[in-house]
């Protein structure tokens, strides 16, 4: 009888343990998935910029600096490795872009260009998507980081080396400026 009870307890413990492990793996995958969502949109933004610059070049003959700042920020952002580095580089890119968009205001011909207008809608939407994807990434990271710090899941997390994930920060100022990407005409 005692053996049976003992066996029962052991089975329960194992089931409990496996449950925690599986939920941790699930949460970590959710974080990864959320990150890949951001990554896709960041890449999309990088892809849009050469077209944008190319279209603008013909009109903005006196704005070489602004344009090259955007191009440089883009290549730096593309080269960034870790999540934190990416955050910093993307912040710079956002700032360069919003500066560029302010300058665009002085070029009504460019603003009337169909090609440019559709690029601008794409860029606005991509920035929105980055912001939304960042929200769900932050949610996922929060949930996961809490889980691996809290008892009893922290025991399992320690045994199997679940590490806390980094948040992806794009500076708020840049975020607030980002909508300026699209402009009035």
């Amino acid at each position: 009888m005692a053996a049976l009870i003992f066996l029962g307890v052991v089975v329960l413990a194992v089931v409990f343990f496996v449950g925690i492990y599986n939920s941790l793996v699930g949460l970590r995958n959710r974080v990864k998935n959320a990150w890949s969502q951001i990554d896709v949109q960041l890449k999309r933004r990088h892809d849009l910029i050469p077209n944008l610059v190319e279209t603008a070049k013909g009109y903005m003959t006196h704005e070489r600096e602004t344009l090259s700042a955007v191009t440089e920020a883009r290549s730096r952002a593309m080269g960034a490795g870790s999540v934190a580095d990416k955050g910093a580089a993307e912040t710079q890119l956002s700032q360069a872009l919003s500066k560029f968009m302010v300058v665009v205001e002085n070029y009504p011909d460019l603003k009337a260009n169909q090609n440019f207008l559709s690029l601008q809608e794409e860029l606005t939407s991509t920035e929105n998507k980055i912001a939304f994807a960042r929200q769900s990434y932050t949610d996922a990271v929060n949930f996961y980081n809490n889980k691996i710090e809290m008892f009893p899941s922290n025991v399992v997390a320690g045994m199997f080396n679940f590490r806390p994930e980094t948040f992806f920060e794009i500076e708020d100022a840049a975020q607030r400026e980002a909508p300026k990407v699209s402009f009035t005409r």
């Binding site: 969502q37 949109q41 559709s118 809608e121 794409e122 606005t124 939407s125 929105n128 998507k129 939304f132 994807a133 929200q135 769900s136």
Partner: peptide
């Protein structure tokens, strides 16, 4: 395109 962009934004959100 705009409608599609918005739907995709909301899908992500």
């Amino acid at each position: 395109p705009q409608l599609f962009n918005i739907v995709e934004e909301m899908k992500i959100a």
